[in-house]
């Protein structure tokens, strides 16, 4: 039985935790509405602006940040669609079919997810330069390298959960394996597919290194790289920086609120076996 005292302590710890997690966002959001004069010096430490303003947002929208957001959205969507498709084929085969080299394939996928990304960046950059693919949406292709392993492992656990009987009865009715896959398995594994799609989307949306090296041109920059460029070498417009972080946090916030169940399942399905 929990005593009233321990439950009170637990509540205090939880509230403290929530405050610590949320504080940076709250502070940055409040700052983004302060005029330039209140961002520097002692008045920067005040919670609310004396004269709230939208000037930083207006200035920000004159830069290419919206275009970068659009790039991020396009690149993340394309990657999500094709990676989820090929990962679901591959995971179904691993979860359900017998074939040689299955263990080797699983080990290779696991190993590629553990390798430092930096190792592939050099050769991919050189190949992209040779092919003239830098600063284009071809960047979605190497994104498979960071998203495919995660998507595959999420989907393997979900395909393994689909009851074998369903599949067998369809198979006895004369449907081929491929047909069974599309008609029976895929609809039943839909929650898993959705989870892996969300995880892939977040993974690409947040990616930084490949985007920084392959798409350095302003026209093709993704949002994460664009925002890092706001922090210039000599002068930092904190007003715009804070406004930009607020704008970039909004899509994440929407995704988290809408799909938190899927995200939790995505984070933990690789970690908790059985």
């Amino acid at each position: 039985m929990q005593t009233a005292k321990t439950s009170k302590t637990i509540m205090t710890v939880i509230i403290l935790y929530l405050l610590i997690i949320a504080f940076p966002f709250i502070w940055v959001t409040l700052t983004s509405f302060k005029p330039e004069s209140e961002i520097w010096g002692q008045s920067a430490l005040k919670l609310f602006a004396d004269q709230p303003t939208m000037e930083h947002y207006e200035a920000l929208f004159k830069t290419t940040i919206l275009n970068s957001l659009k790039n991020s959205f396009i690149i993340a969507s394309i990657t999500t669609i094709y990676v989820t498709l090929i990962a679901s084929f591959c995971s179904y085969a691993i979860a359900r079919l017998k074939f040689k080299f299955k263990k080797v394939l699983v080990a290779v996928i696991l190993a590629t997810s553990m390798f430092p990304q930096m190792i592939v960046v050099g050769p991919i950059y050189r190949t992209f330069v040779k092919l003239g693919w830098t600063n284009s949406f071809y960047i979605t292709l190497p994104y498979s390298m960071i998203t495919l392993p995660v998507a595959t492992f999420i989907l393997i656990t979900h395909f393994a959960k689909v009851p074998v009987e369903m599949e067998e009865s369809a198979y006895i009715d004369g449907a081929s394996k491929i047909r069974t896959f599309f008609r029976i398995i895929l609809p039943l594994a839909m929650p898993g597919i959705f989870t892996s799609a969300i995880m892939t989307f977040i993974g690409v949306w947040n990616e930084f290194l490949l985007s920084l090296t392959l798409n350095s041109d302003e026209k093709f920059r993704t949002a994460t790289v664009a925002i890092s460029f706001l922090r210039g070498q000599f002068q930092i417009f904190w007003g715009q920086v804070t406004a930009a972080t607020v704008i970039l946090t909004i899509p994440t916030l929407i995704i988290v609120i809408l799909f938190q169940k899927q995200i939790i399942s995505g984070i933990t399905s690789g970690a908790v076996k059985e």
Partner: peptide
């Protein structure tokens, strides 16, 4: 939320 926001954004904040 901290997990889901891009690291570059968190670093700027």
């Amino acid at each position: 939320i901290p997990w889901a926001i891009p690291t570059a954004v968190a670093a700027l904040i």
